[in-house]
């Protein structure tokens, strides 16, 4: 199905998510890269060596949830925009997501937006917490959003109201 629509199934998504215990401890990267393609900037971007691809540049990246600090250096570096950061340490009811977003105009902190799933369907409300767009991100801004915890495995994008 994924190869027909570009929409990953729940089972596929679950293989990329760290444990809930890890998510509740603090920010951690979810690397949604499912296909062997010749690409490795995530590995070089990680200052902690938490993402490994190995000798063959076609390997699928593996993120070590024990080593990953959720710093987010990989998010704006992935050419496929396949990486996001999840953080469940802030509250029991919500999760914070950090996702790449390359559309103008950018949202503003505090803005209420519509949360979308992997097929672009509206699923929830989301609140913009922070907008990061430093020169080092090279025009791939990273947006931090707060989303109700029940959408942890479904939320993947947003659109402005």
């Amino acid at each position: 199905m994924f190869e027909k629509t570009g929409v990953a199934t729940r089972e596929m998504v679950m293989t990329k998510f760290p444990s809930v215990e890890r998510i509740n401890k603090g920010p951690v990267a979810v690397v949604e890269c499912y296909q062997k393609i010749p690409c490795n900037p995530c590995q070089t971007a990680c200052p902690f060596g938490a993402i490994s691809i190995g000798e063959d540049i076609n390997n699928i990246p593996e993120r070590d949830e024990g080593v990953c600090t959720g710093c987010g250096m990989c998010v704006a570096k992935c050419p496929g925009l396949s990486i996001m950061i999840v953080d469940g340490s802030k509250s029991a009811e919500t999760v914070e997501f950090r996702i790449p977003y390359e559309f103008l105009p950018l949202p503003e902190a505090g803005e209420e937006v519509i949360g979308l799933d992997r097929a672009g369907r509206p699923i929830c409300d989301a609140k913009v917490i922070r907008v990061m767009n430093p020169p080092s991100f090279d025009r791939t801004p990273v947006i931090t959003l707060e989303v109700a915890r029940e959408y942890l495995y479904d939320f993947r994008n947003f659109r402005r109201k």
């Binding site: 629509t5 990953a8 949604e32 296909q35 496929g80 396949s82 979308l116």
Partner: peptide
Amino acid sequence: PRIGAYLVHASKLARMGVPILT
């Protein structure tokens, strides 16, 4: 019958709500 592009590119479009019709 299948998307020819790197699937990460296709997923970027899919989550913007653009249908990909193979």
